[in-house]
Amino acid sequence: MKRDLQIVDVTLRDGSHAMKHAFTEEQVRQVAKGLDQAGIEYLEVTHGDGLGGSSLQYGFSKVNEMKLIEAAAEECSQAKISVLLLPGIGIKEDLEDAVKAGAKMVRVATHVTEADVAKQHIELGRNLGLKTVGFLMMAHMAPIDKVVEQAKLFESYGAEIVYVTDSAGALLPHEVKERVSALKENLSCEIGFHGHNNLSLAMANTMAAIESGATYVDGSLRCLGAGSGNTQTEVMAAVFDRLGYKTGVELYPIMDVANNIVAKFMPRPQEVTGSSLIMGYSGVYSSFLLFTQEAAKKFNVDERDILVELGRMQAVGGQEDLIYEVAREFARSKKVPV
């Protein structure tokens, strides 16, 4: 079918953060099957921090991601599996393995100013015949002309879609519009948007993105993603239907996989809590959430103070080790008994 918009479901990748990377094979099979039947064309399955993300720094995967990719692919009749790759964490061999396990799309992600580290991986994606996407993370941290410059690099390496990725859930709708419009104007490939709901703006930002020309938008079921999660997939399906866009996703079946499957194993509701709100407010990478809460507890400091400080330090995605140090520093300077 011809779709006006592609809803890419990232529950089984971004949700990995909220699950502390403990998805079981059975959970992955059920979600993948449900998404496939609901008409989702691309669903992402990877460790939250991308291929090779299983580590002490980010948390070990309970089940090897290659096994999960394979399991998800087996359950799908029409849907295809996407994988995330962050150069510096994952390497090209990981992508080759993922393709053997059944991946058909790769999204190569870098910090918004560091696109040039992704050249080899984007080229490899194309050579392997994958649908290849460039993902500019923490898009709130760079001015528009920088975002355009970096997006053009991705396009020049062969990316077929370039994403504005609001990893911190910090962008406001008009800022999404500015970024997506600028890419639409200056690039000839398709544009995508990936949001986080830390300021309760994920759906509004997604609307701003599609109104500015984005054709790929990410979501997670019941918002199961890092921080307060992503734009809610089943809500997007309903909203786009009301707006008259064809997404190929059927409402009742997508709601059923959200509520009958995902909701059953979610460790906590994906609300906008004190700490996720501050992440959006101070522009901190959403996957820092659980690590910050843990450090705050250990050092008996306010998690909001840690997050504001991380924002001030301009921490980027992947710097989870900094959280502990910042918390320790706060405890020391305030003489908080540990």
Binding site: S55, G88, H111, T113, E114, V117, V316, G318, Q319
Partner: peptide
Amino acid sequence: GKAIIILNPAE
């Protein structure tokens, strides 16, 4: 062994 590298553009 495992290695991770992160580039940070902070000013």
